[in-house]
Design a protein around this nucleic acid. Structure first.
Lengths: 111, 111
DNA sequence: CCTTATACATCGTTATACGATGTATGGTCA
DNA sequence: TGACCATACATCGTATAACGATGTATAAGG
């Protein structure tokens, strides 16, 4: 990642919920999709992604299902539950409040 | 804090550097100033702030100095070093790249 | 047949935020 | 004067997150 990775903490869950709010995806697909949409700013690693998905699933925000893809390989598709949709909305609210507040401090005229 | 605290990780150092780029401050003052400017969205705890300041000092981004305040109490004032100013600029660059990229993913029209 | 990309998973390390706790001082007010 | 509170600094232990390393397996393609 071309920026301080610490910034990413706490945002990964939100990004996953948001991406999956559009369509069901499997893990590897999420990695590629996030990279594509961010023009390679985001490059999630498996060691980051899979545990994050498992945790969201365990908390009831995601459902998962094995499906046979067009390639003939088994893939584990994830999608949002009702609770997941609510959590995604909460997450977006938090995100906007947080970033606006940081920006309010950052944009002060330098003395 | 009225939002998912995980979001804050990685941003505290940036906020401290930015606040101290305006004027020297002591720890307790930073907590109050951050709360004031953010309208109480940010409420840093001592357990968060002091270790963060120590770390930034150890990395050479801050200088520190005991001064006798108007109240007659000893206070430890912090200010930016040249390296700290550079780091603050890097941090702001990273912050903008990061938030713009997240927003690019969040603002997609929902399907 | 061998390599590469795909695809899922877990473990151990590192780092962070922070609640809890401790200590000390100065101001306020009964 | 004595009690209490806000101020002010500090450290320790806990919980958690990101992720590098590593392992396994399959399909595609030269």
């Amino acid at each position: 990642m071309p920026f301080n990775r610490e910034l990413l903490k706490g945002s990964i869950a939100l990004l996953l919920l948001r991406l999956l709010s559009e369509r069901d995806m499997y893990g590897y697909e999420i990695i590629q999709e996030a990279a594509r949409r961010s023009e390679d700013v985001f490059e999630f690693k498996e060691g980051t992604l899979y545990p994050a998905l498992h945790q969201l699933h365990k908390r009831g925000y995601l459902r998962s299902e094995w499906r046979l893809g067009a390639s003939g390989k088994q893939r584990k598709y994830y999608g949002l539950t009702a609770a997941g949709r609510k959590q995604a909305q909460r997450g977006e609210r938090d995100w906007h409040l947080f970033t606006q507040t940081v920006n309010a401090i950052l944009t002060r005229t330098k003395t």
